[in-house]
Design a protein around this nucleic acid. Structure first.
Length: 359
DNA sequence: AATGATACTCGGC
DNA sequence: TTACGGCCGAGTATCATT
């Protein structure tokens, strides 16, 4: 304890993860003061029946009584008969997200937006900047969020997960590896149900258990990429890079049919509506695409896709009636179930000379 | 064996 | 016990090419 002046190298707290708490529902709370003290859930209504649809986000009051994203609205209403159920307004959420993005960019050296309500950032002074960002978002937008600050991107993200809602957790190298090692493997982003189950079979429950696991076994079980990554995790090699901001790789629109159907004209009609909307985006962003896909959700809720890649990129206004119909007919030939929801996706963006638009 | 393209499925919010 | 949206990127399977 002699050397109290020793500076904990600030360079070790370089990454931030910023996560808006129950983002859509929090925004709607502000617009619906009558929801104060109540469950508020943001919903996507399919238009099929009065209440058919699913929950997108719910506040913590709702989560406490078991309402979750993805749940049918009718199930949620049974759990919270007095809850406030709001139509999703994605445009508004995107606007608010852009404002938060500006606040974060004004404060950090490097920023990558990870989703509509999540950011990763780099700054040598992350430990000082983190609390400040939280305060500015609170003051300027009246919104709460959770921040994690740590020596690695992974540590920052896991710190935020642990601290939410309305939290701030700053970890140095030692506490970061302690937190990660003591976590159950499922808490690590990138480890889902399947990997968790497979790890459980070889006796791995916590990240620290990975230390006792033969790396060769990990590679044999999970393949080179995942196996090596898991071994690195055990050794405390979390990887430091922030990654590059990625361009959007596709544009898709999905909708629910008024009733389930196998009628080609009826389905083609719905596809055209969705196509028009997606093409607006292609036009506005000046994208040409090489891949066209149709997305089918059958009566049993299973999702299927059929896609077609053109030899050359197509401009937004090129007629693709023939290809659409072909994909639909092919699907109907291979599947006997009725279609409940239908979608269209344009992807594999290129400029018209065939150069990729992604870096 | 590694790499890349394509088609398709899964999972998070 | 069922019920059920609309996106996105990541992951996986398969095949051709090197």
């Amino acid at each position: 304890m002699q050397n109290k002046i020793k500076t904990v190298a600030q360079i070790s707290y370089v990454y931030l993860h910023i996560d808006m708490d129950y983002f859509y529902a929090q925004l709607e709370e502000k617009r619906h003061p009558e929801s104060l003290g109540k469950v508020i859930a943001v919903c996507m209504f399919s238009g099929r029946t009065e209440i058919s649809g699913a929950i997108t986000t719910v506040n913590y009051l709702g989560r406490k009584i078991g309402i979750k994203a993805g749940m049918p609205i009718i199930s949620a209403k049974k759990l919270a008969p007095d809850g406030v159920f709001i139509h999703a307004d994605r445009e508004y959420y995107a606007e608010m997200s852009a404002r938060i993005d500006m606040i974060i960019r004004a404060n950090c050296e490097k920023v990558v937006q990870a989703s509509i309500d999540e950011w990763n950032a780099f700054d040598p002074n992350a430990a000082e900047i983190g609390p400040k960002i939280k305060q500015v978002i609170q003051n300027e937008m009246d919104l709460i969020c959770t921040l994690g600050v740590a020596p690695s991107v992974l540590g920052a993200k896991m710190a935020a997960s642990k601290a939410k809602p309305n939290g701030l957790l700053i970890l140095d190298t030692e506490h970061e590896s302690k937190m990660i090692n003591e976590s159950i493997v499922e808490a690590v982003p990138g480890i889902g149900k399947k990997t968790t189950e497979a790890l459980g079979m070889i006796g791995v429950k916590k990240v620290s258990d990975l230390k006792k696991t033969d790396p060769i076994l990990l590679v044999e079980t999970f393949g080179k990429k995942t196996g090596t990554w898991l071994h690195d995790l055990a050794l405390g090699r979390y990887g430091a890079e922030l990654g590059e901001e990625k361009e959007q790789e596709g544009i898709s629109r999905i909708g629910t049919l008024k009733q389930q159907s196998r009628d080609i004209e009826f389905i083609m009609q719905k596809i055209s509506e969705l196509e028009d909307d997606a093409k607006k985006w292609l036009f506005e962003t000046k994208k040409s695409y090489k891949t066209l896909a149709l997305i089918f959700i059958t009566d049993d809720m299973a999702l299927h896709t059929k896609s077609f890649t053109f030899r050359n990129p197509l401009p937004w206004n090129e007629d693709i009636t023939k290809e659409k119909r072909q994909l639909l007919e092919e699907f109907l030939k291979q599947n006997s179930l009725e279609i409940r929801r239908i979608g269209i996706k344009f992807g594999n963006f290129m400029d018209l000379n065939g150069q990729t638009t992604l870096f």
